[in-house]
C-alpha cells in the first residue's frame, strides 16, 4: 500500500495561523515520511478588486504586487527554515493569480494527498466572502483538507518532533 500521506501540500498566507499550519505540516511530514510542498499565492484578484474600487491606482497596484511577491518569498523561506530545523526538506511554490484556483490546480497537478492550511478568517456574510480565501480553497480543492487550529499544542508538537 502506498503512503496515504505521501504528498502534503501546505498553503500559507503569512498569517500567524498559517505558520502554525506549517509547524503541523512539518511534524506530519516527519512522522509519515511525506514530501512537503509549501505554496504562497500573490492575490492578484484582490489587487484587481482594489483597483476596480479605485482605492488603488494602476502604478500602486503593480507596486503592491511586487511587495506581495517579496512577502511570499520571505514566508516561503521561513517555512523552509522551519523544515530544516527538523531535518525536513520543504519544496516551495510561488504563484500569482486567483488564490483558491491556483491552490486547487497545484493540489491536482502535483497529486497532493492532503492540503494543510491555517484557520479560516472571518467573513462578513456567508453570501459574500471575496477575500476569505481559506473558505474558497476548502470548497474548491478535491483532496482532503486539514484546517489547523490550536497554536500552543502544535508548537509543542513541533518542538518535540
Amino acid at each position: 500500500m502506498s503512503n496515504p500521506l505521501g504528498n502534503i501540500l501546505l498553503y500559507i498566507d503569512g498569517s500567524e495561523s498559517s505558520i502554525t499550519a506549517a509547524q503541523l505540516a512539518i511534524t506530519m511530514a516527519k512522522t509519515y515520511q511525506s514530501v512537503l510542498r509549501v505554496m504562497y499565492v500573490v492575490n492578484e484578484n484582490l489587487l484587481a478588486e482594489l483597483l476596480k474600487a479605485r482605492v488603488f491606482v494602476q502604478m500602486e497596484k503593480m507596486d503592491y504586487e511586487r511587495d506581495l511577491e517579496e512577502d511570499g518569498k520571505r514566508y516561503l523561506n521561513y517555512v523552509v527554515k522551519l523544515g530544516d530545523r527538523k531535518g525536513i526538506k520543504v519544496e516551495t511554490v510561488l504563484r500569482k493569480g486567483v488564490v483558491h484556483e491556483e491552490v486547487a490546480h497545484e493540489a491536482e497537478q502535483w497529486g497532493a494527498d492532503l492540503l494543510v492550511q491555517g484557520e479560516l478568517g472571518e467573513v462578513l456574510s456567508l453570501r459574500d466572502s471575496f477575500y476569505e480565501e481559506g473558505e474558497r480553497i476548502l470548497r474548491k480543492v478535491k483532496c482532503p483538507v486539514m484546517v489547523v487550529r490550536g497554536r500552543e499544542r502544535i508548537e509543542r508538537m513541533y518542538e518535540e518532533a
Partner: peptide, 17 residues
C-alpha cells in the same frame, strides 16, 4: 514599506465593510 500583506488585507476588509 516592508510589510504590504496586512496593509492590503486591511484595506480590502474596509472596502468590504
Amino acid at each position: 514599506t516592508g510589510e504590504s500583506g496586512p496593509h492590503v488585507q486591511a484595506i480590502a476588509k474596509i472596502v468590504k465593510m
